[in-house]
């Protein structure tokens, strides 16, 4: 008779288990690496490879890649494309992060308050959200393009205002389920204020949902930056972002100027993909919505 010793599996904290899941998600890891590389490319790149993105050079326009001093060619006013990708990336990523955070902050507060307070306030706040959802984002952006041409801060606000609806809904749902939890009831019984309840308990306990959603918001924001240019609201030259580069490049499709289109497009796809992957991985990390998504 042999004795089989059963040893209990090593116990891991939820955090450690989450981390393991995150790292096991190969796409998420790819996402982090990609973002890191892009940040280096966009923000440190110009130090290593400085180009003049302010002065035009009408004698060297539309040069294909490989022309002297221009590894990715030049555009229709002579800006170097590779340098422009770096500068454009700074703006795209900046706007994406800022707008994503803004949307999450507004949405979270809105949803938390609506869910917590409930009743008529909740109804009114949610009708506003419904109205926002009923207007498609592209339609709204197109109307805005007939009214204004935004600067970077304005773009952040516009994208933030188009995107806060989803976090609002999510956080409200969580807020509703949380507000009847015991510790919140206990807090109120002890005389704590509503705002304390919201800020100290509801919001922190929805952190998982919020952070995951924030990451997806950033991804969507970077995509929206691209759409904004396509819809006619792009930044004024010489400022640029990847979306503006892509849109300007598209007018030259039939001229065969692929270097004005694909580099910017690929950058957008990779970055957005990366943020989406990270978001997915974070969902595993926080164990949001079960282990299944």
């Amino acid at each position: 008779m042999s004795t089989v010793t059963l040893s209990a599996p090593p116990t891991r904290s939820p955090r450690q288990r989450g981390l393991r899941r995150f790292l096991g998600n190969r796409l998420a890891v790819f996402g982090i690496v990609t973002i890191a590389l892009f940040l280096i490319f966009c923000f440190l790149g110009p130090l290593v490879y400085p180009t003049d993105q302010v002065h035009t050079d009408l004698k060297s326009t539309m040069l294909p890649p490989g022309a002297a001093g221009h590894p990715l060619g030049t555009d229709d006013v002579g800006y170097d494309v590779l340098g422009r990708l770096m500068v454009g990336g700074q703006i795209s990523i900046l706007i994406g992060l800022a707008a994503g955070v803004l949307a999450t902050v507004i949405g979270t507060l809105w949803g938390a308050i609506a869910g917590y307070v409930g009743g008529a306030v909740d109804a009114v706040m949610m009708r506003v959200v419904d109205a926002g959802i009923a207007i498609p984002a592209t339609f709204l952006l197109l109307i805005l393009s007939a009214i204004m041409r935004p600067s970077v801060p304005l773009m952040i606000i516009v994208i933030g205002f188009v995107s806060w609806l989803v976090p609002a809904r999510l956080v409200r749902a969580e807020s509703i389920s949380l507000k009847s939890r015991e510790y919140v009831l206990a807090l109120r019984a002890m005389g704590g204020t509503h705002s304390r309840a919201v800020l100290r308990h509801i919001v922190p306990n929805t952190v998982g949902t919020i952070v995951v959603n924030a990451t997806f918001q950033v991804a969507d924001a970077i995509l929206l930056v691209a759409y904004i240019s396509f819809l006619g609201m792009g930044l004024q030259k010489p400022a640029t972002d990847w979306g503006a580069m892509l849109t300007s490049g598209i007018t030259y499709t039939y001229a065969g100027a692929w270097w004005l289109i694909f580099p910017a497009g690929v950058c957008i796809v990779l970055t957005v993909c990366a943020f989406n992957s990270i978001g997915d991985g974070l969902r595993d990390f926080f164990d949001v919505k079960g282990r299944n998504a």
Binding site: V54, H55, T56, L58, D76, V77, R149, G232, Q236, K237, P238, S248, T251
Partner: peptide, 16 residues
Amino acid sequence: QNGSQETDNMMAEIQS
């Protein structure tokens, strides 16, 4: 006025 790539480019050139 916005909405025209040529005009945008022209303004960038004059600015330069």
